[in-house]
Amino acid sequence: MITIDWNAFTPWSALAGGALIGLATVILLLLNGRIAGISGIVGGLFGRAAGETGWRLTFTLGLLAGPALWAAFHTLPPIQIEADYPLLVVAGLLVGLGTRYASGCTSGHGVCGLSRLSPRSLVATLMFMGAGFTTVYVTRHLLGG
């Protein structure tokens, strides 16, 4: 049985924030003609393909600048990171390698790919969601976190 955490569940801000993310993918698609997949945009910087580096850099700068713009009007929402440094390094390496081998992450496959009704992205999304659920089950409930 699944028990919903009604205190933590934030349906309206989740939907509104999600719509903003969707809007961002639409801006990049309609204007730049590109997929807003973060791992592809950032990881693609290593390749330095002609004509592809500039927009990738400014997109990444936009991501980095978001909190400063937010903080100019509001206090920033909490960012709680439980993992210790060694775990962060291991997790970061896995996320970097995995998303590049999979040609996408939560944004590229999960949002853009599913919006394109891509079978590859559906498989990728089911795989990383399944692995995420399983990993948290193991660390929090089997190993006791």
Partner: peptide, 23 residues
Amino acid sequence: LVIGSLVFGIGWGLAGFCPGPAI
């Protein structure tokens, strides 16, 4: 695609970060 996504999912579950939120 399959192995990479599984590896990504494990890393995601370990720290709660995927690429966008991390940046």
